[in-house]
Amino acid sequence: MPATSYLALGAILFCIGLYGVLTKRNAVLVLFSIELMLNAANINLVAFSKFGLYANQMGQVFTLFTITIAAAEAAVGIAILFALYRNRNTTHADEFDTMKG
């Protein structure tokens, strides 16, 4: 398979995630879409560790770190969502407008 196929798959998944981030009202679904975007970036890293100009295994190391950070991000995001839900009793992202000027 050429490198363009993997990069195109990453681009498609990233755009699906971006559309979800922009349109979904439920904050949990926004977190889902962010996870999908991070996975698309990971596909690009692993694809370049195979097809890059200086292909070596370091791309996989970077993907390992990205997966770790994404796990921490998901945990903190869910915790923030719980705190917001306890205070505002909703998970709709467009109702969290306390900091609106």
């Binding site: 949990v28 977190l31 889902f32 969502l81 719980f82 998970t91």
Partner: peptide, 10 residues
């Protein structure tokens, strides 16, 4: 984790 997030909030 996300499933917990949904079931504890929605």
């Amino acid at each position: 984790l996300m499933l917990f997030g949904i079931m504890l909030t929605k």
